[in-house]
Structure formats: C-alpha cells, structure tokens
Design a protein around this nucleic acid. Sequence first.
DNA 1: GCCGAGGGATTGTTCAACAAAAGCTTAGCC
DNA 2: GGCTAAGCTTTTGTTGAACAATCCCTCGGC
Lengths: 218, 218
Amino acid sequence: MASTAQRTADLLRRRITQGALAPGTRLSEEALGEAMGVSRNTLREAFRLLAHDRLVAHEPNRGVFVRRLEVADITDIYAVRTTLESAGVRASATAPAGQLRAVAEAVEAGEAAADAADWGQVGTADLRFHQALGALSCSSRIDTYLAGLLAEQRLAFATMPSQRLFHEPFLRRNRTIADLLTAGRTTAAEDALHRYLEDACRTVLDALQLQLQLQEGP
Amino acid sequence: MASTAQRTADLLRRRITQGALAPGTRLSEEALGEAMGVSRNTLREAFRLLAHDRLVAHEPNRGVFVRRLEVADITDIYAVRTTLESAGVRASATAPAGQLRAVAEAVEAGEAAADAADWGQVGTADLRFHQALGALSCSSRIDTYLAGLLAEQRLAFATMPSQRLFHEPFLRRNRTIADLLTAGRTTAAEDALHRYLEDACRTVLDALQLQLQLQEGP
DNA sequence: GCCGAGGGATTGTTCAACAAAAGCTTAGCC
DNA sequence: GGCTAAGCTTTTGTTGAACAATCCCTCGGC
C-alpha cells in the first residue's frame, strides 16, 4: 500500500487538478491536517510532493498555496511541451508499435468522450494524447517531465470558462496529427503539432488574461 | 536563511556529487540525523528533496540509498540531454547575447581549470557549459530539468577512475561548439553536439560496465 | 496619514512514542 | 544437512505535542 503521505498528496492533487481547490487557495497545515485525518508532519511531506510537481507553491514561513499560473508559466509550459513532444514525433520512426497505438487510442478515447459530451473526459484524453506523443521518445525522464507539465497544465484547464469550447476544436487536430504519424509523415506531423501548440497556447493565454482583467475590475 | 531541511539536503548533495558517499550507501535516518544534528523529521524532508533530484532512491519501508546509476539511466540521461541541449542550440539565434556569453565563459573557465590541472573544476565547468547550452532556450523549466540531469550525471563522474582522462578530450570539443555558435553556424554546432554527447555517453557506459565487471569478479 | 510596538496566528523544527514492515536469528522438522 | 517458519531486532512510517521563529495585523503614538 502506498504511504499515507503519498495518498494524501494524490487526493490533494485530484482536488487541485479538478478545480475543487482554486488557484491561490491557502492550504493551512492545521486545518487541512484535521480535515484529512493526518498529522501535520505527514501533510508537510505531501506538500513537498505537490510542490515538486509545481501544483502548489511553498512560500517559506507563509505556507503553501495552490499554484496560480502566470503568463510566463503558460508560455514556458507550451515552449517545453513543444520541445518534448516534437522530439517524440521525430522519434516515432524508431518507436515500438505499441507506443504508436497508444497515441491512436488516446485520440479515439477523446472522440468517444466528445460523443458522450463528457468534456472533462475529453480533457483527460487530450492530455493522454500528448503524453503518448512524448512517450514516443522512449525516455522515462521525458515521460516524467511531460506528466508534470500536463498536471500543471490542468491548473489552467480547471479555470477555463467552458471546457467544451476549449477542447472541441482540438479533437480534430489530434486526429490529424495521429493520422500523419501512422502514415509515417513525421515532418508534416511535427508541423501540425507546432501549429496546434501555438494556437492552444494563445487560447489559454487569452482566457487567462480575461480572467486577470475580471479580477482587477472590482 | 534557507531552512534546515534545505541546508541538510545541500550538504548531502555535495557529499554525494563529490563521491564522499558512494552509490548504494544506505542513509540511515537515525545515524545521519544524529551525525548532522537534525531531527529525523527534518532529515526526511531533506531526503525528499534529494529523491526529487534522483540523487537518492527511496525504497518504502527499507530506507533511502545513494542512487546507483544503471546502464538504462546513463543512456536515458544522455538522450534527454541531447534533446534539451539541441533545442537550446537551435534557439541560439533568438537568445539574448548574455546567454551566448555565458556559454563562452564556461568554456574559458574549463580551459583555465585545465591549465591549473584542477580536473574537478574542469568537470564543474563542463557541466556549466552544458547548462548554458540548455539555457539558450530561455525556459526556466528546461533549466531546472537540465540542472537535475547534470547533478545526476555527477553520480557517474564521481565514480570515474580518472577525471583527467575523462574530461580532457572534451575541452577542445566544447570550444569548437562554442565557436560554431558564436559564428552563427547553429546546424554545424548541433551536429558537433550530437557527436559529442554520443561519444561521452559511450565513454561513461564503458567505464560503468568495467566497474560492474570488477564488482562481480570477487 | 505614517510609523513602530505588540500580540496573535502560522509555520519551522525538535522530541518522544508507538505501529508497521523488513531482515535476521533460531528453533524445529524432514 | 538443509529447509521452513516463528520470533526477535532493527528501521522506517506516522502521530501528537511542544517550543522557537517568523509573519501579519492591529493598535497606539506622533
């Protein structure tokens, strides 16, 4: 069985990535510890794990807060994703067949979820698709990096006004990239991926800036 | 002032990367805590930080051990470094001048250390050079990743039989890459970097396998 | 209105204790 | 003799309490 700290971190991670704990929320050691039935020490261990994933920010002597993504974070995340996922696409020629199948499966999962109008699941499938792209590099460290980036990304997703408007346009583009990949047209796939990530980055940035304006207004 | 856990982790990190704590060494909570004058709780926090950098491996209910790099680790580290450092080289055209200067400075530091026959410093300068290459991407996350990879890499350096034989051949190649970069010949620089990392990877692997054989012998 | 002192709340760190797991020893059996 | 298994020992996992250090807010003085 996983350790208590691990389980506590997992639970908090889920709450954060699902938006139940909004960015900027302060996570009090005493209150949370009591609520979750763990000691302060254990909770602090869990915080360390989450801080490592950049889901919370630890400010010394002040506490830990649910991470609030800034413009620089978004652009950086997308820049790194571009680097890592592109590397995966370029490595697709030498990747085992199973990895390519995982890409296709993620696309199908997304389409199925869209048919069921389950936009939360569409988001999950989308992240799985990009994780699968990175996995084409067959590098456990790249897998880890990308998993962290995508978890962080969820911080942005969770605060999106409409999951549907955000995810729907990208379903078809995922399909396009996957098809280009299975057809062996890696260069075309890489180009499509670049454009995809650029557009997605802009969309997220727009939504973020809209949010910041709304916050400043009142 | 940094927290006690942070300082403890830094001290241990230095001991590990300098080879004072050999790979495979078990780090007992009680013994180490007493030796370093910190409580078990604080030490556990420090362990988390080090585990995050992959300098130690945490085996549940068994303890933490100084990481022992395997063949798969070495190849993975070099593969990821290739991806990240290449991305930096490709971005060199748009990088601020200061970043390019940092690359040149790292090369010069390495040459100066070689003149002084300080091979430990040569190793440090070498890592700084590669960190500077990655920094050309102007991405804080890539910087973080590379810093972790290079710290992990030191685990391999520390067990090298001869620092000099290992580092000396790469001094000139660092210079070559830096010169190609400042000349704006990024494609040539990227090619040189690829060959460099391939050769370095092979060298480290050879040394590692030699070590494994020596261990198994008796 | 600005500045500093004081108080309250929260985190940082330590200690002591017990539960839980892993590894070693020893006893018993075939 | 070698193997299995129970029991013991050691170490980690987790908790609770305690105190110091730090930050933040409030209150008072100027």
